[in-house]
Simulated scan of single mutants.
Amino acid sequence: MDLYYSPLACSLASRITVYEADAADRVSLHRVDTRAKRTADGADYLAINPKGQVPALRTDDGEVLTENAAILPYLADQFPGAGLAPASGLERYRLSQWLSFIGSELHKTVFTPLLSPTADEGAKAFARAAAPARLAYLDAHLTGREHLLDRFSVADAYLAAVLNWARFTAVDLGPYPAVAAYVDRLHKRPAVARAMQEEMGLFQAA
């Protein structure tokens, strides 16, 4: 499989998933310049993913998947022994619920405007105003819990990538103690620490 990523983008969740599954030998990582729409070897990334965004995953069958909500469960299903996604039942739908919440309510609503160099102050103000209710909801859920589901899942990998942006956007997690403690736990998890260290190095070297 081929995973297309950009350092510290939401594709970090896929790298975390690959490391959690101990599957680095099964997945080739390809860096993408999302502004130039080129891969590190100069290939036209739009020919791989016409949306020009990361992540994208080329499967062993040559199919291309995009969007975290599709790629992360797919990766989990390729390595079922890692237990990164419930196989079926209500818990599988709970996984979809959290992937959707992270993607729509945190990733796109809060952090995308704050990270965007082209978003105007109105968009950034909307994002800052939207953050407290969403983080409070997450904080309530995580109070007394280690993970979003009963064990670490690809939803936690995605949330780790998204909450990592708080330090770049001045989003204060201090008022949400369960969220802050959750982030601290994640950063001590070997696969998460490895993925973040690697991508931070790549990001700083760019």
Rank of each mutant, 00 (worst) to 15 (best):
Y4A: 03
Y5H: 09
A9S: 14
C10D: 03
S14Q: 12
I16M: 12
T17Q: 04
V18K: 01
E20V: 07
A21S: 15
A23G: 12
A24R: 15
D25C: 06
V27Y: 03
S28E: 11
H30L: 09
V32T: 13
V32L: 02
D33W: 06
T34M: 13
A40Q: 08
D41K: 02
Y45K: 07
L46I: 00
L46M: 10
L46D: 08
I48G: 01
I48N: 00
K51W: 01
Q53E: 14
Q53F: 14
L57C: 10
R58M: 11
T59C: 08
T59K: 02
D60Y: 10
D61S: 15
D61A: 15
E63A: 14
V64P: 13
V64K: 13
E67L: 14
N68F: 01
N68K: 05
A69K: 08
A69Y: 03
I71R: 02
P73N: 11
Q78A: 06
G81V: 05
G81F: 13
A85I: 08
P86D: 13
P86N: 14
A87R: 15
S88Q: 09
S88W: 05
G89S: 14
Y93R: 10
R94A: 12
Q97K: 14
W98P: 04
W98S: 08
L99H: 01
L99T: 00
I102A: 03
S104Y: 12
L106V: 14
L106C: 10
H107I: 03
F111V: 00
T112F: 08
S116Y: 01
S116I: 08
P117L: 05
P117Q: 04
D120A: 04
D120P: 08
E121W: 02
E121I: 02
E121S: 12
E121K: 02
G122L: 05
A123V: 00
A129H: 05
A129D: 11
P132Q: 06
R134G: 10
L135T: 02
L135N: 02
Y137W: 13
L138T: 08
D139N: 14
D139S: 09
H141Q: 09
L142H: 06
L142K: 05
T143W: 00
R145H: 08
R145V: 03
E146N: 14
H147V: 13
L148V: 06
L148A: 09
L149E: 04
L149M: 09
D150H: 12
V154I: 14
D156N: 06
Y158C: 06
Y158I: 07
L159R: 04
L159K: 03
A160Q: 07
A161F: 05
V162K: 03
L163H: 00
W165H: 01
A166H: 09
A166D: 04
R167Q: 11
F168K: 03
L173D: 03
G174K: 12
Y176I: 02
A178V: 12
A181R: 15
A181V: 06
V183S: 07
V183Y: 11
R185H: 09
H187G: 13
H187S: 11
H187A: 12
A191S: 13
A191C: 08
A193T: 05
A195Y: 02
M196G: 00
M196T: 00
Q197I: 01
E198C: 00
L202T: 01
Q204T: 12
A205M: 01
A206G: 14
A206V: 04
A206P: 04
